[in-house]
Design a protein around this nucleic acid. Structure first.
Lengths: 208, 208
DNA sequence: GTCGTAGGCGTACGCCATACACCTACAAGG
DNA sequence: CCTTGTAGGTGTATGGCGTACGCCTACGAC
């Protein structure tokens, strides 16, 4: 009956994402999002319980951009690769959102749906019971960890350069590896790591 | 010549860790650590540049408790498992430190030394060049991600319970898997996931 | 036109990190 | 033993944050 709402959750999430993309994760504040929407800070609270819920909206928005359908005739390893790579791509488009993703990866419908899709493929591949639990958590851990390692590294890649310059006397392997790492693009590194994990799932004592 | 220092970095790290263990990650503040040390807030700044450096000290302290020596005659997979499990154990003793670990895993001598130890084993196992880079990053990503998934989950495990209660109609696989997951202790889940990854390193097209 | 609901906003409070200026405890040099 | 300069410890102040609360008012229903 009274005045209609003038904002949607989607608009709010988009505004917050814009702030984060522009000013980095530390730039996100209720004040900043408010003025991004040309509203007062407190107006936001008509739409959002608190800052935490707003962060959840941002994460949900990013995850929702990942397609969940996979070709049913493709091998299960390939289908899982698709699902994982799509999340990686969605996040790579907004690197500054990684710290929020770590805290809110659980509490959105988009993330539940992604998990459901992953488990669907694993189930069709023959995984069940504890093996399915372990396989899913291993893939999830790798994905989460890789995002974190890639985007929250020591200034996202410049750290590798710094490590490459370490005194070879103190850290010979580390310095050498960091030098090698400079020639490996992040996508390739991510993909190959994922391939290793999937190979372990394929050829383990509990195959199928 | 003037007055001697009355605090060491170790004492400060221990105090901050005590605060975190008692009040959780959000309880960490310069004020809290100051009063834990029976000093004023600002006294801390004589020993520490800013809050970020203090966080680094805490992480360094936790990581330093992980032993780095491994039996040279053991298989390389077992030696890597030891190194990874020790970090997991060190962190599991102070779960609230996980968010800080994610941000500061790079900037302490302890973490560099751990990386060096891991790479030493990988090198002895025959890995080199890009393969060594990929293997190391895969293991690191899994470790980081698993810590995050385990300790920053939806309230650390209670979330699994919540998911298990989801409407099976909407998320059938997710609900079933969450039910299965309740019977798997976290250490076993972590260990089996790591085993999968190591198996992938062993039996891949680029073994040795 | 009237009215009640709920949108939008201003103010204020308590927390945080931290810059700065001050006092003072103490080791070194006499 | 006394002086002195350095650096330790502290109090105060600033500017940011999230958000509780209360006010005004635009608006749909009647």
């Amino acid at each position: 009956m009274p005045r209609p709402r003038s904002l949607t959750h989607d608009q709010i999430a988009a505004a917050a994402l814009a702030v984060i993309d522009r000013d980095g994760p530390a730039g996100l504040s209720m004040r900043a999002v408010g003025s991004e929407l040309r509203m007062s800070t407190m107006a936001l609270y008509r739409y959002v319980r608190d800052r935490e819920q707003l962060e959840g909206l941002v994460v949900a928005g990013v995850l929702a951009s990942a397609e969940l359908a996979t070709p049913p005739e493709a091998p299960w390893t390939e289908r899982l690769t698709l699902l994982v790579e799509r999340v990686r791509a969605a996040v790579a488009a907004h690197p500054s959102v990684v710290p929020l993703l770590l805290l809110h990866r659980h509490d959105s419908a988009a993330s539940l749906a992604w998990g459901e899709a992953m488990l669907g493929v694993l189930t069709e591949a023959g995984f069940s019971g504890v093996q399915r639990v372990v396989a899913f958590r291993a893939l999830l851990s790798y994905l989460i960890g890789a995002l974190q390692v890639e985007h929250l590294g020591p200034l996202s890649g410049t750290g590798t350069v710094a490590i490459a310059g370490l005194p070879s006397a103190d850290y010979p392997h580390l310095a050498a590896t960091a030098r090698d790492a400079r020639s490996v693009p992040p996508e390739q590194e991510f993909g190959q790591g994922l391939a290793i994990l999937l190979r372990g799932l394929e050829c383990g004592p509990q195959p199928r």
